[in-house]
Simulated scan of single mutants.
Amino acid sequence: MTVRRIGNATIEKVEELCAAGFRPNRMFPRFDQQAFDAQKHWMVPVHVEPGSDRLVGSVHTWVVKTGRHTILIDTCLGNDKQRHNAAWNNLSLPFLDRLRACGCPPESVDFVMCTHLHVDHVGWNTRLENGRWVPTFPNARYLFAKREYAHWESERARQGEGKVNDGSFDDSVLPVVEAGKAVMIDSDHQPDPMLTIRDYPGHTPGSIAINLENGGKRACFSGDIMHHPIQVYHPDWSSQFCSDQEMSARSRRKLLEDCVESNVLLCPAHFPGENAGYIKPEGNSFRIEWDKQ
C-alpha cells in the first residue's frame, strides 16, 4: 500500500476490488473510438483490458489521517449486500482486514465522508450483525451532503422501499441515520482544519469533492466526477450513470481547471493502478501526470 503525504497528513488507498467492466462505448454516450485509440498506448493494460477494450475500474476507499482525525472517504460496496450486479452481490471480502493492516481499525475512524450516495460508495457504512444492518465504524460520524441525501430520500418516497440505488439507500444509509450517526452537511462544513468541501453536481444532484490542504500541498478526492482517466483527456465524456450529462461535463471541466490552478493531487474513486496524479493543461483539454510515490 502506498502512503502519500500532504504536509503533515497522510492518505492511503485501500482497495476492495478491481476488475475490467464496461466497454467504453457503453460507458460513455459521447464515446469516440478514434479519440479513445489515440490514448490507448498508455491505458493498456492497467486502465484498459487488452483485447476487449473494457475499462478497468477499482473500488476503493481513501484513508486520510490529519493528526487530529482519521477519515474515510467513500466506503465501497460492502459484504453481504444483495445486489443485481452479480460481481457485487453477496460479497465476502477482507476489506476490514485491509483497513486494519494500514493502521485503521473500525474503532479508530472519526468521520466517514461519502462524495455521493451511489451503491459503490456507501456499502461499508454498515455491516450485518445478528440479521440487522449496523454502522461499521462505531465511533464515527457519517457526513452526508444535505442536497444529496434529500434527493435520494425523495426518490425512496417515490420508488418505494429497497428500490433506490439497488437497495443501498435502505441497507447502507438509512441504518446510519436511524442510529443517530449521520450529520447532514452543507459545502461550508469543515470537519477538520485541513479539509474543505466543494459542490460539483451532475453525476448526482449533490455530488461533492473533498479537498485536503496542509504544508503548501493539496489533494482532491473527487468521487465519481470522473470514473476513468480517459475523461481527463475528454472531460465532455460523461458516463451513462450521470444524472445530468451536461452538468456533469461542466463540473468535470471545472474540477480539472481547479486542479491545474492549485497544483492539486487528484485522487478519484475508481482509477486503478497508478490511481492519483497531477492535472496539466493540454490544448483545450488536459492530461494527467501520475504520482509515482
Results as ranks from 00 to 15, higher is better:
residue 1 M to F: 14
residue 1 M to Y: 09
residue 1 M to V: 10
residue 2 T to I: 13
residue 2 T to K: 15
residue 3 V to Q: 15
residue 4 R to D: 00
residue 4 R to V: 02
residue 5 R to M: 12
residue 6 I to S: 01
residue 12 E to N: 13
residue 16 E to D: 05
residue 17 L to V: 09
residue 24 P to C: 05
residue 25 N to M: 12
residue 26 R to K: 10
residue 27 M to W: 01
residue 34 Q to W: 06
residue 38 A to M: 12
residue 43 M to L: 15
residue 50 P to E: 15
residue 57 G to M: 15
residue 57 G to T: 15
residue 59 V to G: 00
residue 65 K to W: 06
residue 66 T to I: 09
residue 66 T to M: 07
residue 71 I to T: 06
residue 72 L to S: 07
residue 76 C to E: 02
residue 80 D to N: 11
residue 81 K to I: 01
residue 83 R to M: 14
residue 84 H to K: 15
residue 85 N to M: 12
residue 86 A to V: 14
residue 86 A to N: 13
residue 87 A to E: 10
residue 89 N to Y: 07
residue 90 N to H: 13
residue 91 L to A: 11
residue 92 S to F: 08
residue 92 S to L: 12
residue 93 L to P: 00
residue 95 F to L: 09
residue 100 R to P: 04
residue 107 E to C: 05
residue 110 D to R: 02
residue 112 V to F: 05
residue 120 D to Y: 03
residue 121 H to F: 11
residue 121 H to V: 07
residue 126 T to E: 04
residue 128 L to A: 11
residue 129 E to R: 13
residue 133 W to K: 01
residue 133 W to C: 00
residue 134 V to M: 07
residue 138 P to C: 12
residue 141 R to S: 14
residue 143 L to K: 01
residue 150 A to N: 11
residue 161 E to P: 03
residue 165 N to D: 10
residue 169 F to Y: 14
residue 173 V to I: 11
residue 174 L to C: 04
residue 175 P to Q: 09
residue 184 M to G: 06
residue 186 D to I: 08
residue 187 S to M: 11
residue 189 H to R: 09
residue 191 P to F: 01
residue 193 P to T: 10
residue 196 T to R: 10
residue 198 R to L: 14
residue 199 D to P: 08
residue 202 G to W: 00
residue 204 T to A: 05
residue 206 G to M: 08
residue 206 G to S: 08
residue 211 N to L: 14
residue 211 N to D: 15
residue 220 C to N: 03
residue 221 F to Y: 08
residue 225 I to A: 02
residue 228 H to G: 05
residue 232 V to N: 06
residue 240 Q to T: 14
residue 249 A to Q: 10
residue 253 R to A: 08
residue 256 L to V: 04
residue 260 V to R: 03
residue 263 N to E: 12
residue 268 P to C: 08
residue 268 P to W: 03
residue 269 A to N: 04
residue 270 H to G: 03
residue 271 F to I: 13
residue 274 E to C: 09
residue 277 G to D: 00
residue 280 K to E: 09
residue 281 P to N: 15
residue 283 G to Q: 08
residue 284 N to F: 04
residue 285 S to Y: 06
residue 293 Q to W: 06
